[in-house]
Amino acid sequence: MSINATLIGQMIWFAIFIWITMKYVWPPLQKAMAERQQQIADGLAAAERGKHDLELASKRSADALREAKDRANGITAEAEKRAREIVEAAKDAAKVEADKVYNSKLAELEQEAERARSALRERVAELAVAGAEKILRREVNAGAHADMLAALKQEL
Protein backbone atom coordinates (compact mmCIF):
# COMPACT_ATOMS: atom_id res chain seq x y z
CA MET A 1 0.00 0.00 0.00
CA SER A 2 1.82 2.95 -1.33
CA ILE A 3 0.72 6.17 -2.91
CA ASN A 4 1.75 6.31 -6.53
CA ALA A 5 0.61 7.36 -9.97
CA THR A 6 -2.52 5.24 -9.58
CA LEU A 7 -3.80 8.26 -7.70
CA ILE A 8 -3.69 10.37 -10.86
CA GLY A 9 -5.40 7.67 -12.87
CA GLN A 10 -8.13 7.36 -10.28
CA MET A 11 -8.65 11.10 -10.22
CA ILE A 12 -9.15 11.00 -13.96
CA TRP A 13 -11.67 8.15 -13.63
CA PHE A 14 -13.48 10.06 -10.91
CA ALA A 15 -13.60 13.23 -12.99
CA ILE A 16 -14.91 11.28 -15.99
CA PHE A 17 -17.68 9.71 -13.93
CA ILE A 18 -18.66 13.02 -12.35
CA TRP A 19 -18.82 14.46 -15.85
CA ILE A 20 -21.01 11.60 -17.12
CA THR A 21 -23.36 11.97 -14.17
CA MET A 22 -23.49 15.73 -14.53
CA LYS A 23 -24.14 15.67 -18.24
CA TYR A 24 -25.98 12.48 -19.10
CA VAL A 25 -27.47 11.01 -15.93
CA TRP A 26 -28.77 13.64 -13.56
CA PRO A 27 -30.33 16.30 -15.83
CA PRO A 28 -32.57 13.96 -17.87
CA LEU A 29 -33.65 12.00 -14.82
CA GLN A 30 -34.27 15.16 -12.87
CA LYS A 31 -36.26 16.56 -15.77
CA ALA A 32 -38.37 13.42 -16.02
CA MET A 33 -38.97 13.44 -12.28
CA ALA A 34 -39.86 17.13 -12.22
CA GLU A 35 -42.23 16.64 -15.16
CA ARG A 36 -43.88 13.73 -13.42
CA GLN A 37 -44.21 15.74 -10.25
CA GLN A 38 -45.83 18.52 -12.26
CA GLN A 39 -48.19 16.04 -13.92
CA ILE A 40 -49.18 14.55 -10.60
CA ALA A 41 -49.71 17.98 -9.11
CA ASP A 42 -51.82 18.98 -12.13
CA GLY A 43 -53.82 15.78 -11.87
CA LEU A 44 -54.48 16.29 -8.19
CA ALA A 45 -55.46 19.89 -8.77
CA ALA A 46 -57.80 18.83 -11.58
CA ALA A 47 -59.35 16.19 -9.36
CA GLU A 48 -59.82 18.75 -6.61
CA ARG A 49 -61.35 21.17 -9.08
CA GLY A 50 -63.62 18.44 -10.42
CA LYS A 51 -64.80 17.59 -6.94
CA HIS A 52 -65.46 21.25 -6.24
CA ASP A 53 -67.34 21.59 -9.52
CA LEU A 54 -69.39 18.53 -8.70
CA GLU A 55 -70.29 19.96 -5.32
CA LEU A 56 -71.29 23.25 -6.88
CA ALA A 57 -73.29 21.51 -9.58
CA SER A 58 -75.14 19.31 -7.12
CA LYS A 59 -75.92 22.35 -5.01
CA ARG A 60 -77.09 24.18 -8.10
CA SER A 61 -79.22 21.25 -9.19
CA ALA A 62 -80.79 20.99 -5.74
CA ASP A 63 -81.53 24.71 -5.86
CA ALA A 64 -83.01 24.38 -9.31
CA LEU A 65 -85.09 21.42 -8.22
CA ARG A 66 -86.45 23.27 -5.21
CA GLU A 67 -87.18 26.33 -7.28
CA ALA A 68 -88.93 24.24 -9.90
CA LYS A 69 -91.00 22.56 -7.21
CA ASP A 70 -91.96 25.91 -5.74
CA ARG A 71 -92.91 27.21 -9.11
CA ALA A 72 -94.87 24.10 -9.92
CA ASN A 73 -96.76 24.44 -6.66
CA GLY A 74 -97.45 28.09 -7.47
CA ILE A 75 -98.64 27.20 -10.93
CA THR A 76 -100.92 24.46 -9.61
CA ALA A 77 -102.48 26.79 -7.06
CA GLU A 78 -102.88 29.44 -9.69
CA ALA A 79 -104.47 26.97 -12.06
CA GLU A 80 -106.87 25.71 -9.43
CA LYS A 81 -107.88 29.24 -8.58
CA ARG A 82 -108.29 30.02 -12.24
CA ALA A 83 -110.35 26.89 -12.77
CA ARG A 84 -112.60 27.83 -9.89
CA GLU A 85 -113.00 31.28 -11.31
CA ILE A 86 -113.86 29.93 -14.73
CA VAL A 87 -116.41 27.54 -13.28
CA GLU A 88 -117.97 30.36 -11.28
CA ALA A 89 -118.05 32.62 -14.30
CA ALA A 90 -119.53 29.87 -16.42
CA LYS A 91 -122.11 29.19 -13.78
CA ASP A 92 -123.06 32.88 -13.62
CA ALA A 93 -123.19 33.17 -17.38
CA ALA A 94 -125.29 30.05 -17.66
CA LYS A 95 -127.71 31.37 -15.06
CA VAL A 96 -128.01 34.71 -16.85
CA GLU A 97 -128.52 32.95 -20.15
CA ALA A 98 -131.07 30.59 -18.67
CA ASP A 99 -133.00 33.49 -17.16
CA LYS A 100 -132.92 35.28 -20.44
CA VAL A 101 -134.14 32.28 -22.38
CA TYR A 102 -136.79 31.56 -19.75
CA ASN A 103 -138.08 35.11 -19.81
CA SER A 104 -138.18 35.34 -23.57
CA LYS A 105 -139.93 31.97 -23.82
CA LEU A 106 -142.37 33.00 -21.14
CA ALA A 107 -143.17 36.20 -22.99
CA GLU A 108 -143.56 34.25 -26.20
CA LEU A 109 -145.83 31.78 -24.52
CA GLU A 110 -147.92 34.52 -23.04
CA GLN A 111 -148.24 36.15 -26.42
CA GLU A 112 -149.19 32.81 -27.93
CA ALA A 113 -151.73 32.22 -25.25
CA GLU A 114 -153.10 35.64 -25.76
CA ARG A 115 -153.31 35.07 -29.46
CA ALA A 116 -154.99 31.71 -28.95
CA ARG A 117 -157.38 33.17 -26.48
CA SER A 118 -158.40 35.96 -28.81
CA ALA A 119 -158.75 33.48 -31.66
CA LEU A 120 -160.75 31.26 -29.41
CA ARG A 121 -162.89 34.15 -28.37
CA GLU A 122 -163.67 34.88 -31.97
CA ARG A 123 -164.39 31.21 -32.67
CA VAL A 124 -166.66 31.02 -29.59
CA ALA A 125 -168.61 33.98 -30.80
CA GLU A 126 -168.94 32.42 -34.26
CA LEU A 127 -169.87 29.03 -32.76
CA ALA A 128 -172.29 30.68 -30.53
CA VAL A 129 -173.77 32.47 -33.41
CA ALA A 130 -173.77 29.28 -35.54
CA GLY A 131 -175.27 27.28 -32.70
CA ALA A 132 -177.73 29.89 -32.20
CA GLU A 133 -178.55 29.94 -35.89
CA LYS A 134 -179.10 26.13 -35.90
CA ILE A 135 -181.24 26.28 -32.87
CA LEU A 136 -182.98 29.11 -34.28
CA ARG A 137 -183.56 27.45 -37.65
CA ARG A 138 -185.14 24.35 -36.10
CA GLU A 139 -187.09 25.90 -33.41
CA VAL A 140 -187.82 29.28 -34.67
CA ASN A 141 -191.29 29.52 -34.67
CA ALA A 142 -191.82 32.87 -35.74
CA GLY A 143 -194.94 32.92 -33.78
CA ALA A 144 -193.46 31.49 -30.66
CA HIS A 145 -190.35 33.40 -30.72
CA ALA A 146 -191.53 36.54 -32.13
CA ASP A 147 -191.40 38.19 -28.81
CA MET A 148 -187.84 37.05 -28.10
CA LEU A 149 -186.67 37.98 -31.55
CA ALA A 150 -188.37 41.18 -31.18
CA ALA A 151 -186.60 41.62 -27.86
CA LEU A 152 -183.28 40.70 -29.51
CA LYS A 153 -183.95 43.09 -32.28
CA GLN A 154 -184.65 45.54 -29.66
CA GLU A 155 -181.37 44.79 -27.98
CA LEU A 156 -179.21 44.77 -31.09
Binding site: F17, I20, T21, Y24, V25, W26, P27, P28, L29, K31, A32, M33, E35, R36, Q39
Partner: peptide, 15 residues
Protein backbone atom coordinates in the same frame (compact mmCIF):
# COMPACT_ATOMS: atom_id res chain seq x y z
CA UNK B 1 -22.87 1.60 -13.79
CA UNK B 2 -22.67 5.17 -15.10
CA UNK B 3 -23.00 3.99 -18.68
CA UNK B 4 -26.20 2.14 -17.87
CA UNK B 5 -27.38 5.09 -15.80
CA UNK B 6 -26.79 7.40 -18.76
CA UNK B 7 -28.67 5.03 -21.09
CA UNK B 8 -31.53 4.72 -18.59
CA UNK B 9 -31.64 8.47 -18.03
CA UNK B 10 -31.78 9.02 -21.78
CA UNK B 11 -34.77 6.73 -21.96
CA UNK B 12 -36.39 8.04 -18.79
CA UNK B 13 -40.03 8.93 -19.19
CA UNK B 14 -42.05 11.33 -17.14
CA UNK B 15 -44.85 8.79 -17.22
Amino acid sequence: VFGSLAVLAGRATSG
